[in-house]
Design a protein around this nucleic acid. Structure first.
Lengths: 134, 134
DNA sequence: TCAAAACCATATAGCCACTATAAGGTCAAT
DNA sequence: ATTGACCTTATAGTGGCTATATGGTTTTGA
């Protein structure tokens, strides 16, 4: 299987596959005589694993860590659970930040209607004055 | 006022101030004979404006746009309100994405407890199998 | 059969908003 | 005279791709 077929089968760009190889997330495949990369079923699985992790917004470093764990199948899996817990905490904290942000933005937006001159725009005033919390 | 004092008064790094100048967000200040930048009260206000926008996670491009509006005080302010509405929509959509993500992560996490071998880790299994939605 | 289209390769730069590092000039106090 | 705090510019790195340039290879079809 060549790179284009692998890319289509998983739904990523060929550039992304080469990028993962450079980053050490995908093992370098064999090459044909003309230099073309030849992938196996193991590469398909490996790439699918990476993409599933990326959908969950794990970082490439975290994916790397998970791959290292896969290489030591008889170690306890606590570290994996911890990695996930940390990631969940990170996502939750980001949600809360954004909810605070949304409130501030909505309150700022409420200070203006559409039919003023810029000079009198409540939004611009709110951004220019210093009475913002944090 | 020199760059260090401006930086401390607003709470940013001096590098960030020079970066904003290069990006056209802060007007280039006068220089002393030795080349040191000299800032005025107007620069303080301008930098504070930028930081307030950044706290609300407006992009530098959006801040640039707001600054252009400030230069035309008798135009109607609808565009400003629209900019803010778009940003609010963006924040809300990101919150929803992250809430979906959190659910997926929590459900994945629930498929394992801490005391297995990596080989039997439910989390790693969940990431390796293809039964993920999306 | 030959040309166009589709595919593959590498190298390099760009995105965003900084942050870090290097290498050096200036100034006040000791 | 030297230390330390400040200032200057230039350049590279962060993350996770994406885009572009340039050129070789293979496949398709008129």
């Amino acid at each position: 299987m060549r790179i284009g077929q692998l890319a289509r089968s998983i739904g990523v760009d060929t550039q992304t596959i080469r990028f993962y190889e450079r980053e050490g997330l995908l093992p370098p495949p064999d090459r044909q005589d003309n230099g073309y990369r030849v992938y196996t079923e193991r590469h398909v699985e490996r790439l699918a694993f990476i993409r599933r992790c990326r959908i969950l917004e794990l970082s490439l470093a975290e994916i790397h860590e998970l791959q290292r764990y896969q290489g030591a199948p008889h170690q306890p899996c606590r570290a994996i659970n911890t990695l996930l817990d940390d990631h969940i905490a990170h996502v939750r904290s980001r949600i809360i930040d954004l909810q605070v942000l949304e409130k501030q933005l909505v309150s700022l937006r409420a200070s203006c209607n559409d039919d003023r001159e810029i000079e009198a725009c409540g939004v611009l005033e709110g951004l220019s004055e210093g009475n913002m919390q944090q």
